[in-house]
Design a protein around this nucleic acid. Structure first.
Lengths: 161, 161
DNA sequence: CGAACCGATGCTTGTGGCAAGCAAGTATCG
DNA sequence: CGATACTTGCTTGCCACAAGCATCGGTTCG
């Protein structure tokens, strides 16, 4: 009896999620990223954010963080580096490792992208009440949390900040 | 003053959305799709659902529906067809066009996938209250609606069912 | 004690595969 | 003949896997 209602809710959420994923792909395709260092691919900017926000990273740490293969990260970081958005320093404690950190230019680009991203959400959520925004953020956070736990090998707890 | 709170909320939502997109990619990668006609890729199943649910389609209609290039749809449908999940009939009213419809096998596979998908959500939302589920579904729907309106060329209103 | 060795670790590079779009072709319609 | 419905060839973006190189840390031997 209540199972039916519950099922319908799950179905509804599942449907919206599916829809959202399709939409968001197109959203990203549409979004113009600040392309100060031209020729960068989209995932590079994801890495840039991580680096800009959470300080210097080892490549391996970065890979775990975003759940991508190390090889992919390696290439993207190389691209970021040659675009001048990021800089490598050999880890003093282990010369096999490099620490990747943002450059000033990288910080600027990141800031610009962040501003764009925020502006977009501002536009999308224009009609929402504060309560709606809060609840949605909270529930979404909860969902992500569960998702991260279910998925194997997701370490990223630190989404604060 | 309230602007600050609002900004923080937008930022929070934006962050969760970003996180969710990354997570969901891995989620899909993890999900085992029913592989009755094996060798099928994920996007093919997206099309299969559409076809199974909303009856026969022309390729062009399908392409508009899911906002993909006709060429992509053409290939995916070909894959579905050779897996026996889908069948083509030349449109009697226009012999350039084909009407794509599910086969019995396709219907089975679709049902199985749908069940899996539902089960997954059941698991993910296990701890949620009915209110939370309802609100989340409603807000998510609203977001998608806005998103669809902002994105150019999104016709798909009919996400009901 | 120091040099030589060895497995583990951090990263890079080569290769390959899928999915998507664009553009050019073919068949049919009107 | 021009427009439409699709197909097909090619390119690009993004990813993983696997092999390889350099370095590290610990052990063993002289």
């Amino acid at each position: 009896m209540d199972d039916d209602a519950e099922l319908a809710e799950h179905a509804a959420i599942g449907r919206q999620v599916g829809r959202f994923i399709r939409l968001s792909e197109r959203l990203f395709a549409t979004l113009k990223w600040s392309d100060a260092g031209r020729g960068l691919e989209r995932p590079a900017y994801v890495l840039l954010s991580r680096i800009a926000v959470d300080g210097p990273f080892r490549l391996s740490a970065l890979a775990t963080e975003v759940a991508l293969d190390l090889s992919t990260v390696s290439r993207q970081v190389a691209a970021l580096e040659s675009a001048g958005l990021v800089r490598r320093a050999t880890d003093p404690t282990d010369r096999r490792a490099s620490l990747v950190e943002v450059t000033d230019l990288g910080r600027d680009v990141f800031a610009e992208n962040k501003a764009r991203w925020l502006a977009m959400w501002q536009e999308l959520l224009a009609g929402w009440t504060p309560e709606e925004r809060q609840i949605f953020a909270a529930l979404f956070t909860q969902l992500n949390q569960t998702l991260a736990e279910k998925l194997p090998g997701t370490s990223s707890e630190r989404d604060a900040r």
